[in-house]
Simulated assay, not measured.
Amino acid sequence: MEDYFLNQEAISPSCLIKILQGDKLPKEGEIWEFTNEIKPLDLYCYLYAKYGPPNGIQSLLRSDDSDNLIHWEWALAGEYGITMIQGQNFRSEVLLRGHFKDKGLTVDN
């Protein structure tokens, strides 16, 4: 599981909506919050270099000012489900939705 995040693929917002509205993806999931562990700018630069511009639904809803709660979001698909990574005002969040339970995936990965 240590290289799980290296094997993700960016998905389009329209595809993400279809996946989330469908009944094939399990409803279970986890949310990880990062406040001081990694700088949001470092995370943004890494994700942009690897996957291109933010492609999450929240990125489409934001305005071009500093009043956004969520400033950027990537939606990625992997072997066990969907991973959404958000840059928020006071933290970054990783939202996992799918078959992640009992896979041994942890924040340290």
Score class of each variant (00 low, 15 high):
Tyr44Gly: 07
Leu25Asp: 01
Asp23Pro: 03
Ile31Leu: 09
Val94His: 00
Leu96Gln: 02
Arg97Pro: 04
Gly104Val: 04
Lys101Pro: 00
Ile57Lys: 13
Val94Gly: 00
Pro26Lys: 11
Tyr48Gln: 11
Leu95Ile: 14
Ser63Pro: 01
Asn89Glu: 10
Asn55His: 06
Lys103Arg: 12
Met1Val: 13
Gly52Thr: 13
Asp67Met: 14
Cys15Arg: 10
Ser59Lys: 07
Gly56Trp: 01
His99Ala: 09
Leu6Asp: 09
Val94Phe: 05
Lys39Glu: 11
Asn89Trp: 08
Phe5Ile: 04
Ser63Ile: 14
Gly98Arg: 01
Lys39Met: 11
Trp32Asp: 02
Gly104Lys: 03
Asp67Gly: 10
Pro53Gln: 14
Pro26Cys: 06
Met1Asn: 08
Tyr4Thr: 05
Arg91His: 12
Pro26Val: 08
Glu93Gln: 11
Gln8Tyr: 03
Gln21Tyr: 12
Asp64Val: 13
Leu95His: 12
Phe90Ser: 09
Asp102Ile: 06
Ser66Pro: 03
Tyr80His: 12
Ile11Val: 13
Lys101Tyr: 07
Asn55Ile: 04
Gly81Glu: 00
Asn68Val: 07
Cys15Asp: 07
Ile31Met: 07
Asp65Met: 05
Leu47Tyr: 03
Arg91Ser: 14
Leu60Gly: 14
Asp42Trp: 06
Lys24Ile: 09
Leu41Thr: 10
Glu93Lys: 11
Asp67Pro: 02
Thr83Lys: 02
Met84His: 04
Phe90Arg: 09
Leu47Asp: 00
Leu16Gln: 06
Asn68His: 06
Leu25Gln: 02
Glu79Arg: 14
Val94Ile: 12
Ile31Val: 12
Pro54Asp: 05
Gly104Tyr: 01
Tyr4Gly: 04
Asn36Leu: 15
Gly81Val: 04
Leu43Thr: 07
Ser92Ala: 12
Gly78Pro: 02
Pro13Leu: 04
Thr83Ile: 13
Gly22Asn: 08
Glu37Leu: 13
Tyr51Thr: 08
Pro53Glu: 15
Ile19Asn: 03
Ile85Tyr: 02
Leu61Ser: 15
Asn68Trp: 02
